[in-house]
Amino acid sequence: MADVAPLGIFGKIASQSAWAENADTLRRRVGEIPTEERRRIAEYLRSGAPVIALMGFSEDILGDKFVRSGGTALMSDGRFFWRLDAADYVEYYGIGLPEEFIAHGAARQWIATTLSRGEVIEVDDRLAELRRSGVL
């Protein structure tokens, strides 16, 4: 459980201004997820367990399609972790995600595992390690 991996570009803590620096990287991945798959993947991302809840909101850095309250919060399914607003980027733009994650979610029929309190604490401990090492 404690060996959670970042979900590509979405696996980082960043303020709105720092996150905006990723716009070009996101633009290059627009449309990689087919329209018919976006909603269920986005629902999976939204149903992950909140591990680090952060105040504020995130704004769409590619256009004006969404604003997400708490969008910089980090979510997890026990295997990966991601920003909450990753779901919006997938749903509205089809931003591509790592193949390992797509295989992982598809194998679970896009139903996120419910994490126990202890498992959330394990993930949080791992994220703290990553922050101390400079990865996050």
Rank of each mutant, 00 (worst) to 15 (best):
M1N: 03
A5K: 15
I9Y: 07
I9H: 07
F10E: 01
K12Q: 08
K12N: 02
K12M: 09
I13V: 03
A14S: 14
A14Q: 09
S15G: 13
S15T: 15
Q16I: 00
A18W: 02
W19F: 10
E21D: 03
E21M: 09
E21H: 13
N22I: 00
A23F: 10
A23H: 08
T25E: 13
L26E: 14
R27W: 03
R27F: 01
R27C: 06
R28L: 12
R28A: 15
R28T: 05
R29E: 01
E32V: 00
R38K: 12
R39Q: 14
R39T: 10
R39N: 07
R40H: 14
A42Q: 13
A42M: 07
Y44D: 02
L45M: 11
L45W: 12
R46E: 15
V51R: 05
I52C: 09
I52Y: 11
A53W: 06
L54I: 15
L54C: 14
M55T: 14
F57M: 12
F57N: 11
S58L: 06
E59M: 14
E59H: 14
L62E: 09
G63N: 07
D64F: 00
V67G: 01
S69Q: 03
G70A: 04
G71E: 01
T72F: 07
A73Q: 04
M75N: 04
M75Y: 15
M75K: 03
S76H: 09
G78A: 02
G78S: 03
R79M: 00
R83I: 01
D85C: 09
A86W: 00
A86V: 01
D88F: 12
V90Y: 04
E91N: 12
E91T: 00
E91W: 11
Y93W: 07
I95F: 08
I95P: 11
G96S: 03
P98I: 03
P98S: 12
E99H: 05
E99A: 15
E99T: 02
I111A: 04
A112E: 03
T114V: 13
T114S: 14
T114G: 09
L115Y: 06
L115S: 14
S116M: 06
V120A: 14
V120M: 13
I121K: 10
E122G: 07
V123L: 08
V123R: 05
V123Q: 09
D124L: 10
D125N: 15
D125L: 04
A128D: 08
E129W: 10
L130V: 02
L130C: 05
R131G: 14
R132E: 08
V135S: 06
L136K: 09
L136Y: 11
